[in-house]
Amino acid sequence: MDPRFPDIFLQSMRYIGAGLAMIGATGAGVGIGLVAMGGVQSIGRNPDATSTILTYMLLGIVFSETIAIYAMAMAMIILFV
C-alpha cells in the first residue's frame, strides 16, 4: 500500500464532503427564488410601494442566503480546517 494513501484518501474525502455540504445551497436557491417571486409579484400589484418591498425583499433574500452561507462555511471548514 502506498504510504501516502491515508493523506490522499483524507483529501479526496474532504473534497467529496465539501461538495456534499454545498447541496445545502439548493434550498437557499429555492428560497431566494421564492422571495424574489413574491417581491416581483407585489411590485407588479402595487408599483408605488416598490422601495419598501425592495427593502424587505432584499432582507428576505439575505436571510435565505444565510443558509447557503452556512453550507459554504461547512464546506470551507471541511476543505481547509
Binding site: E65, I69, M72
Partner: peptide, 13 residues
Amino acid sequence: ISLSLRLFFNIFA
C-alpha cells in the same frame, strides 16, 4: 455568527 459569516463568506467567496 450569522452576521459575521454572511459578510465574510459573501466577500471571500
